[in-house]
């Protein structure tokens, strides 16, 4: 089961040795391990009397970075996509940006494919880690550029609404994109925004303030 945590219990002359044996068996590095000491171990008097072995439990720590990388690498291999992956994190959010040739396929129509993959990687990772993480996938800064485009669009349309005093209905957008428009205009003195319709055809409306 992928959700299962791999762990082993090992004994050694001292804690150090017991841990080493466990790490070797799990084939992991120390930074990926959680170590629980069951028995400190005791050399005993003159190393003869009361000699006790050290006993530890070593668990594999599920680090999100590792799971994200492994998942993406496998998926890209199966999709015959070659891309460079950059991952940065603030602990809760994991931003993964891809660079490479012909990655248009990875973005899809208006980011559909990227959104789908982002959703799947998020499910795959969050079922394995204890603390929920948010994963954002991007291709060549596509999302950031799209956000800038939407903000410029919002400003342009707000001016138009102010001038004409008629509302404007935007193209259907996904929730993240709609949020960009709402946020861009939330402090605009002349217009207000709301969404109408049902997903996936929900649209933002920009209306003049009376």
């Amino acid at each position: 089961m992928p959700g299962e945590v791999r762990e082993v219990e090992k004994t050694g002359k001292n804690i150090e040795e017991a841990v080493e044996i466990a790490l070797a068996e799990l084939e992991i590095d120390r930074e990926d391990a959680e170590i629980e000491i069951l028995e400190e171990g005791n050399k005993g008097l003159f190393g003869i009397i009361g000699n006790r072995a050290a006993r530890v439990i070593v668990k594999e720590k599920k680090r999100p970075e590792k799971i994200i990388r492994a998942f993406i690498e496998k998926v890209f291999e199966a999709m015959h996509i070659e891309a460079e992956m950059q991952l940065r994190t603030d602990g809760d959010h994991f931003y993964v940006n891809f660079h490479g040739k012909d990655l248009g396929i990875l973005i899809g129509r208006r980011g559909d494919t990227l959104d789908a993959l982002q959703y799947l990687v998020s499910l795959a990772v969050n079922r394995e880690v204890q603390k929920r993480v948010r994963i954002i996938l991007d291709v060549e800064e596509y999302r950031r550029r799209r956000e800038e485009t939407l903000m410029r669009l919002a400003q342009r349309l707000s001016e138009k609404v102010r001038r004409t005093q008629k509302h404007v209905v935007l193209e259907p957008m996904n929730p993240q994109e709609r949020r960009v428009i709402h946020t861009a205009l939330q402090n605009d003195p002349a217009v207000y925004t709301f969404s109408q319709g049902n997903e996936p055809y929900r649209k933002v409306v920009i209306s003049p303030k009376k």
Binding site: I105, T113, L123
Partner: peptide, 17 residues
């Protein structure tokens, strides 16, 4: 059907290639 839809989207992208 949200997960099935996401899988279909990814698979379609791979097939389109």
């Amino acid at each position: 059907g949200k997960i099935a839809k996401a899988m279909r989207t990814v698979v379609k992208a791979a097939a389109a290639k």
